[in-house]
């Protein structure tokens, strides 16, 4: 953890109009996330964690309040500018992987770089291979997404999130679709990335996962009800290795 502030939000509010009513999804959130933190954001459905994730991911803008991403103010940006910010600074990992169907791992991982004109074809391929090696898929470079297991697909998705070297990785229920053993293998991967200095925000409704992160923020009804630092996170690898391998 360094002093560089990756995310700094102050008094963040987000209202939605549903018919005549106004729904207050976020009611004044403030926190700062520094480089190298592994933050889990928890909350039941309706707590506002999805709305928060959308705003942190620059997919949505707050109704009021400030959001600085890596020192850049986001809420005044136009749609295309936010698209560029997402492309350069953020890596998304989704619950359902969202890989392109029938497409090889390399092509899937290359995708963010295709929307960045500064890379040429050779650089794209090099970086994609490096990202896939980082998630342990160096032997699955040319497998198509439909030929891989859920865990492997999620690893490809994580490689895709890493390929543009983002300041932050946003994971939305990234283990939600996986069985326990595979979940822990993915969690192990996140811990390894964290150990290598990556900043990660992991949004989940599963309270168990708080044990494995360095900081846990709990939301309820659009407010932060707790924000605790976990000095000694549990090792996901140990749990993973203790779980019995599935016999087919």
């Amino acid at each position: 953890m360094t002093d560089r502030e990756i995310i700094k939000i102050t008094d963040l509010r987000r209202n939605f109009r549903v018919g005549d009513e106004t729904v207050h999804a976020l009611r004044g959130l403030s926190f700062t996330i520094h480089e190298g933190e592994f933050v889990t954001i928890m909350g039941t459905s309706g707590s506002g964690k999805s709305t928060l994730l959308n705003i942190l991911g620059c997919l949505d803008i707050p109704t009021s309040g400030d959001y600085l991403l890596d020192g850049i103010s986001v809420q005044k940006m136009s749609k295309p500018q936010r698209a560029t910010i997402r492309n350069r600074k953020i890596g998304f990992v989704f619950q359902n992987y969202n890989l392109l169907p029938k497409t090889t791992s390399i092509e899937n991982v290359e995708l963010p770089l295709l929307y960045n004109a500064t890379y040429n074809a050779r650089q794209r391929k090099e970086r994609a291979i490096r990202a896939l090696e980082a998630v342990g898929l160096h032997d699955r470079l040319y497998h198509r997404s439909n030929q891989m297991s859920g865990g492997q697909q999620q690893r490809v998705a994580i490689a895709r999130a890493l390929v543009n070297d983002p300041v932050i990785i946003l994971a939305d229920e990234a283990t939600g679709n996986l069985d326990t053993r595979t979940s822990f293998s993915i969690l192990t991967l996140f811990q390894e990335l964290h150990a290598r200095g990556r900043t990660i925000i992991f949004v989940t409704h599963n309270p168990e996962l708080a044990d494995y992160s360095s900081r846990n923020i709990v939301l309820r009804d659009g407010k932060i009800i707790s924000d605790t630092i976990n000095e000694s996170p549990a090792s996901a690898r140990e749990v993973y290795e203790s779980l019995p391998k599935e016999e087919d």
């Binding site: 295309p80 997402r86 492309n87 969202n98």
Partner: peptide, 16 residues
Amino acid sequence: TREIGLRMAIGAKGRD
């Protein structure tokens, strides 16, 4: 639709 959403999330602009 989901693919389009993904492309937008990873940085595709509307005009892309």
